[in-house]
């Protein structure tokens, strides 16, 4: 464990707290993509299936349970919460996710760390899917132009988590002999690259004060 990975995990937890605060606390799903939320639930339920047999550490175990629980809670409220459904914009949240899930599934089967292990295929699928899971959310924000304050912090924290993981991988690559995780490195790079445009507008809007809303062209 190094500071970059710890901060990355904390940023990930923060993104969940912000989203739960908005959806469950604020009873509003305005500007939030259910498609992204559902893809993240798929990502965690597939990647963390090794909860059943892998106890790398209590820290990992607890956070895996937290991420699965939080992502399923978000999907549940967005699908069945009366006020959340009323504020969720289904026709704007229209990104064709089948064009994301299918290629990731094919890639997961073809490119993974052990072609004889179904878990490795599922694990690789979840890594690839996470890299693109944010696209419906960014697509929705682009469509709406203006990003509500809490939503902008949620997306920022979610983007920052994988950016911090990139620093974590660089640190581990430099300090641990023969450490390499090409699948997660490349996917993490793609994932973080997708946020660059948002990061730029987030920074532009927040340098005038944290409560300014983010405007996307």
């Amino acid at each position: 464990m190094n500071i970059f990975r710890f901060l990355g995990d904390m940023s990930h937890i923060l993104s969940f707290l912000l989203l739960l605060h908005k959806i469950v606390g604020g009873k509003s799903a305005a500007g939030i993509s259910l498609r992204t939320a559902e893809m993240y639930a798929i990502v965690f339920c597939t990647r963390y299936i090794d909860l059943l047999w892998n106890f790398a550490s209590l820290y990992n175990y607890l956070l895996k349970l937290l991420f699965i629980g939080a992502s399923l809670t978000i999907v549940y409220f967005m699908r069945y919460g009366p006020s959340q459904k009323a504020t969720y914009n289904a026709d704007e949240d229209a990104f064709p996710v089948q064009y994301l899930i299918a290629p990731c599934a094919v890639l997961g089967v073809l490119i993974n760390q052990d072609h004889s292990s179904p878990f490795e295929m599922v694990w690789a699928f979840s890594i690839y899917l996470e890299a693109v899971a944010i696209l419906p959310q960014l697509f929705l924000l682009q469509k709406q132009g203006e990003v509500e304050n809490l939503t902008s912090h949620y997306v920022f924290a979610l983007g920052a988590y994988r950016a911090l993981y990139l620093l974590n991988w660089m640190f581990r690559f430099m300090t641990e002999p023969d450490y390499q995780q090409r699948i997660v490195w490349l996917s993490g790079l793609v994932q973080t690259a997708l946020y660059c445009d948002f990061f730029y507008h987030y920074y532009q809007s927040k340098k005038g004060g944290l409560n300014k809303s983010v405007k996307l062209p």
Partner: peptide
């Protein structure tokens, strides 16, 4: 085919 890396990260 990449050799197995332990999955110690989230």
């Amino acid at each position: 085919e990449e050799e197995e890396e332990e999955k110690d990260e989230l």
